[in-house]
Design a protein around this nucleic acid. Structure first.
Lengths: 111, 111
DNA sequence: TCCCTTCATCGTATATTTGCGATATGTATT
DNA sequence: AATACATATCGCAAATATACGATGAAGGGA
């Protein structure tokens, strides 16, 4: 058993949860924060900052990439990682609309 | 090997990722949506709506509860699930501030 | 009291994630 | 061509998540 039932939910539910999943590890949050602190894309450096092995960091980057949040352009011997802003904005606004829907009903709390 | 390194990140990174993890499954998104559609806490019904076995749904509810997003008050033979609004608002606003920080720097995109 | 309903928990199987070292790849530099 | 550097990928081990059926607990009604 342990059949994966994720396909049985709506597409939007799957998309939102996939986005959340991409952010569901502190290392990946940390990576995004590094991007926020600098005003440029990351070209290396990440491995030095995180307390993880190079291969593990590479794996986390891959996951952000596969989630569509990251554009990685391999550029010579060093890579350049950038946020895919279109995707990021789309997901974050969808999250906010979910949050807001929930909050509106909050005003009529029942227990 | 396979040692869990989550503790080596900052507390905020851990909190945010834990929140994201709670939303990282379509079933849990669906549960929150059900709450949004009705104007009241959920007393049963969830199992009928989701395409999952009762025990599995119970497990997902437990996870939302352990993430601090859900308050569950077992009340006689039926339970009542409510969102923990304080926690929810805290996390969603922290997410937004992360999003906004990222967006600000977006304006100086470099690649 | 004896069942029925509702939900939680346990045990278990499988899938996925996390993490590392080793190795491959790909581009500059010498 | 040989080397050095930065990343990616592979292979494996351990941890965690997902899912279900079976069972347990607790209240309500016959």
């Amino acid at each position: 058993m342990a059949i994966n039932k994720k396909e049985e939910f709506t597409k939007k539910e799957q998309e939102l949860s996939a986005f959340a999943k991409a952010l569901a590890h502190p290392a990946r949050i940390a990576i995004l924060k590094v991007l926020a602190q600098r005003n440029e894309c990351i070209c290396g450096e990440i491995v030095d900052i995180l307390p993880l092995a190079q291969s593990t960091v590479s794996q986390h980057l891959k996951e952000l990439k596969e989630a569509g949040l990251f554009d990685g352009s391999v550029d010579g011997p060093r890579s350049c990682y950038c946020i895919n802003w279109k995707a990021f904005e789309k997901f974050s606004s969808e999250f906010n609309s979910l949050f807001n829907t929930l909050k509106v009903n909050n005003e009529k709390a029942c227990c």
